[in-house]
Design a binder for these strands. Sequence first.
DNA 1: CATTTTTTGTTCAAGTCGTGAACAAAAAAC
DNA 2: GTTTTTTGTTCACGACTTGAACAAAAAATG
Lengths: 381, 381
Amino acid sequence: MTSADLRTRNQVRLLRAVHDADAPLTRADAARRLGIGRNTAGALVAELERARLLHEVPAETSGRGRPTTLLVPHPDGPLAFAVDFREDAWTLASVALGGAITELEGGEHDRTPRAFADIRAAIERHASGRLAVVGFATSGPIRDGRRLHISHLAWEDVELDDLIGADWPTTAVDNDARLAGLAEARRGALRGMGTAMHFHIDFDIGGTLLLGGDAQRGAHNIAGEFGHMPLTGSALRCMCGVLGCWSLDVGANALMRRFGGEPGYGTGRELAQEVLRRAEDGDPEAGAAVDANAAALGRGLGALANALDPEAISLSGLGVDLIRLRREVIEDHCAEGLMAFRRDEPPRIVSGTVGAAGPLTGAAEIAWDAILTEAWVRARR
Amino acid sequence: MTSADLRTRNQVRLLRAVHDADAPLTRADAARRLGIGRNTAGALVAELERARLLHEVPAETSGRGRPTTLLVPHPDGPLAFAVDFREDAWTLASVALGGAITELEGGEHDRTPRAFADIRAAIERHASGRLAVVGFATSGPIRDGRRLHISHLAWEDVELDDLIGADWPTTAVDNDARLAGLAEARRGALRGMGTAMHFHIDFDIGGTLLLGGDAQRGAHNIAGEFGHMPLTGSALRCMCGVLGCWSLDVGANALMRRFGGEPGYGTGRELAQEVLRRAEDGDPEAGAAVDANAAALGRGLGALANALDPEAISLSGLGVDLIRLRREVIEDHCAEGLMAFRRDEPPRIVSGTVGAAGPLTGAAEIAWDAILTEAWVRARR
DNA sequence: CATTTTTTGTTCAAGTCGTGAACAAAAAAC
DNA sequence: GTTTTTTGTTCACGACTTGAACAAAAAATG
């Protein structure tokens, strides 16, 4: 590492600070935050402005002192696109430095890999020279970052390379639940935490362990199937091939099974919503089902907290409803699952604040992660 | 970060390379490994020699070319001490740069916190000006790095600060199972892996998740109680206060329960060894017990692999015996617990290679981690 | 045995970088 | 109108890594 690399490194740190801040940073602020002199900050920013990575606009003054400038994305700067590919629809958005999301287009799809062609066409419709990296969120595990297993679309071992081909822009792909967790860690309820977890509860449970603001991927990029641990003593066989998965007792599938629906990825989401609504209105049968769901959720969270000791656990999807309707049930059963000596300091269980935009937001984050590197910035100068 | 810090950073990287290498590095080797020029390496080493952090000795020549030097610990360089504090005994060792361990002293103790005074006296007997940091391995969770919970010594919430006082040398403390895992990750069976797990099986199971060669600690430094997740459907209540812990079915306590011993931390280790011996000799009852133990172990490992996707899982303690006697049982039940799509690529289950020296080795690693920092090296120059 | 090849150590000029100090600039407070 | 506070700018300085060129030391070659 030469002294020139030092410069690049500081520029990346500066850009990262701008990207991560929730309010625009002033130049003097940024200098303090990075622990560098105002002169150095000036030199860094000047170069970044010339590279069209950062733009300075006058900041409205506040308090005394010479007025400073706000560091904002350059109007001709790089953009990340983010794609949220769901089971029957997709969304394409553009994301500027700092994380501001502009939805560009969305569409439904026919559940065949052809959908990727539609998405690529949409990307091309909106792409300009400013497009730098596409972040892509999809459901299902993505083994080694290349092979898709989306069971409810009956995509088994679909090669990602075949789908996106060589003519796509630079792309960073990851799993939706994991990206939702990343979004909470970077811009939501888990911000600033060293150890945290996130779970998305839909038909079943997917999640991720978040360490220092990064989602863990595992050795084959398929970490996060927490729903497929036998945490609640179920005797049923899960669609994944294992006996007794936690997911059998938590999420829409568990509600459907109880109310006669066939577990699977069809219209069950409406049924689940209806059960929640009825429970909210006082229907005892629905209430019992929601109780059981919340209890199983809490029990599993307690077990996981013993092993991984998160500071907080955020939930999305049905988890938000369960917290709203049954916080106490979740927390009580979580406490029961906690080792006695931990019960005075249980993990905080919170609703995610990024909400349904989680996968899209997380996709934007991994795209910007690919941009905010020394290699990329060095090449841009 | 000024250019002077760049120098320190490179010196730390150099020292780290020397420490991590399994064979002494030559100066030219080190330069290549760090990607720096021979001239820079020469300057770095000269300064480190002056700071008594590194010593150069002529390397026996091999192949052609001008002979080079071997980078070895300086004879007056800093030393780490490592302590392994077990339930009834302790060991004190001295560890040089590179990880070479010299056992200094050991002793038994009376299971009261007084043991710490003995250990401190031993440290003082052996300490010289070269002692830099003491790494300390103890059983039981250490909440926030300060409060000990060693249930089988009936130490509940013992304040570590009271025990080691202000007059101890700089100390890095951590849990023994976690340090055993760290030892495997740094110098054993898990070396070089991005995601791996280690479990120590004694009376029950303790373990750690290893990411990029580092053991995860959690938000309150009490991560790793994987044994207290309900992975095997037990209906018993565990000593920890939770129903159905994995540890109830794996380890010496499970064997003792089966053979009439009272679960607890007494003499059960001999009983467990006897059961293993009898199983090895073909005793059917003992064999069945060992089978059950191995099956429960494998089932839990499969579940954890779904969630955390380790490349390999290493075992220590009884786990080594279980692998030796029942590898197939473990692997079969692990596969049953794995989601179907992962079964063609299961985590490798291996015996740890550091063995009983795990906690001591891990303690040495965290001590050297505290030395091999930019702040420490800068202060030393 | 002399020469060539290979590898490593050493020296030196060149190019960068961040710093700290001093000063200028611009606003608010007095 | 003056003082105080905060920020921007300039510049000399010290420190670092690099790359090239050359020296040194061993093995290989003939």
